[in-house]
Design a protein around this nucleic acid. Structure first.
Lengths: 294, 294
DNA sequence: ATACTGTGTTGCGCAAAACACAACATGACT
DNA sequence: AGTCATGTTGTGTTTTGCGCAACACAGTAT
């Protein structure tokens, strides 16, 4: 009971002529005969009354014609409906870490919105830490965040850009920081403003541990965005991803230390699951990011 | 886009597990995978989001599920509707010649009505002459009538019974007829009541011509049923099919002439077209008549 | 670390279904 | 009687669908 068979039936029901109908359907006459025979077997009743001269619809045929018309129409409707939605639509929930919000997201979001204005966007922000978790549980389709250190299972990651972690210091440094500006930074003496947790904290810890340095911590703050004003106030030096610094309103009120340790750079990109990547709205975002990072 | 494929889809959409769904459908896992792939190709979008761990419906899948449910339900409805009508129903229009109405029809109609009470019957009566024409033009499904002399094209005939054409005379014959009752009938002398047209007229004409007799015609009437009262009134002798005589209310008021010429007997039966015989209501009548005539 | 388990997918041979071509059957027309 | 028109049936070929086995992949256990 294929849709095609229904179309064949309808053609014959209209033309009432096996020969012509078979031509219209691009079928041999015998194939048409057998198709109708199959249908009649499935329906359980003759659909056409044949006569070596003429063909006409039986009572069952009339009813089947109504059924077939409706069935085909509904398929058409469904198909066009689905195709019209093919113009990538639906919803897309994005989670962005603060870092990402300041760096990649504006460009990406703008391109996406221009390309696929039909998609209903939902944007949530939070720490990069939570990003992967949210993606994994399915609460969120996609995250724009720094690459987590350990690649978690079932997570697809698309790196878009890297940005170095830079050390920053106040423009008018106090005495304890003064000398560090032109000299090699000595982290055991210079007061440090540290993120409470997060990737950059782990990077720094790792580095400090490898150098066996115990730092002089002046304060701990949560989140990269809070670090910059703290440094500006003179609490100490700190590290932030360069991208974050560039987009900060305080970017001109702190300075980057040149003679500072080189930490592993941030890799910022997209996180999603294989499953979500099968959805067109997600796939489109992914594709777009892939293209832009080229 | 077979109905079976829709069922398979719905099963998987419910279980969300290829392995179990394939078992439920009596299918190998690979066949299920490919069935879904076929469907997805026809729909033009993925229906399921797969992950090596879990399966879930995509947005298109959700919509397709609604479509599939409806399509299947409509097929079910159509099928049960058609099957319930399988108890031979519909309409059956019967044309019966007067002869038939008096002879075969009562029994046949009663049996038919008992066997297939659902069929809406339509009965028209008229001359045997018109019967074949009406069947041929399709105005009537079936005719119960005497076999027409020349078998017309596309007409199926089922003989049911034969009945002789008998000569009848009044019980109290007038002088001119008196002697004929015991003697050999002399048609050139005896006054005749003749049907104006019709099969029995043709039979008689044929016989007379072969014997080169010019008859003594007392009156002409139209229709077999009118002949009997005319004979009873003493207008002359005449011929009627025996079956007609037997069912006539005047059957006891005329007598059958034994020493009369033997005319070719009437063959009474069913007329229809091949085309109409494909309809169950017609076929059933035919079948019934076939059985009864055994 | 390595093997094992659960799950969906792909390669491949085979069997069933569908098809085209030709022959046939039937009835009408000449 | 022969020819035409039309639907059906016989037969060999192509296409489709299926099952089995192997694979791919990710989690989990040893």
């Amino acid at each position: 009971m294929d849709n095609r068979e229904l179309e064949i039936f309808l053609t014959l029901a209209e033309l009432l002529h096996f020969g012509r109908a078979s031509q219209v359907c691009n079928l041999s006459a015998s194939a048409l005969t057998r198709t109708i025979q199959r249908l009649e077997e499935q329906v359980g009743q003759p659909l056409f009354l044949r006569d070596n001269r003429t063909v006409s619809l039986s009572a069952a045929g009339e009813q089947f014609r109504i059924y077939a018309r409706q069935a085909l129409q509904e398929w058409q409707q469904f198909h066009t409906a689905i195709k019209s939605e093919q113009t990538i639509a639906g919803t897309l929930s994005i989670y962005a870490s603060i870092t990402a919000v300041y760096s990649l997201l504006p460009d990406l979001l703008e391109s996406y919105r221009n390309a696929y204005p039909e998609v209903q966007l939902e944007l949530r922000t939070g720490t990069a830490e939570q990003a992967v978790g949210q993606v994994q549980t399915g609460e969120i389709d996609l995250a724009v965040a720094a690459l987590p250190d350990r690649n978690r299972s079932q997570i697809e990651f698309l790196p878009i850009t890297t940005t170095p972690l830079v050390f920053i210091a106040p423009l008018q440094p106090e005495s304890s920081i003064a000398l560090t500006i032109e000299e090699q930074l000595d982290l055991s003496k210079t007061p440090l403003v540290l993120p409470q947790a997060g990737l950059s904290r782990r990077r720094l810890d790792k580095w400090l541990k490898s150098k066996r340095i115990s730092p002089n911590i002046s304060s701990e703050v949560s989140g990269n965005e809070a670090i910059i004003p703290m440094v500006k106030l003179g609490c100490g030096v700190s590290i932030v991803p360069q991208l974050v610094l560039e987009r900060s309103p305080f970017r001109d009120e702190v300075q980057i230390l040149k003679n500072a340790p080189q930490l592993e750079p941030y890799v910022v990109g997209l996180c999603s699951t294989k499953r979500n990547l099968q959805r067109s709205s997600v796939q489109a975002f992914w594709q777009l990011a892939e293209d832009q990072s080229l």
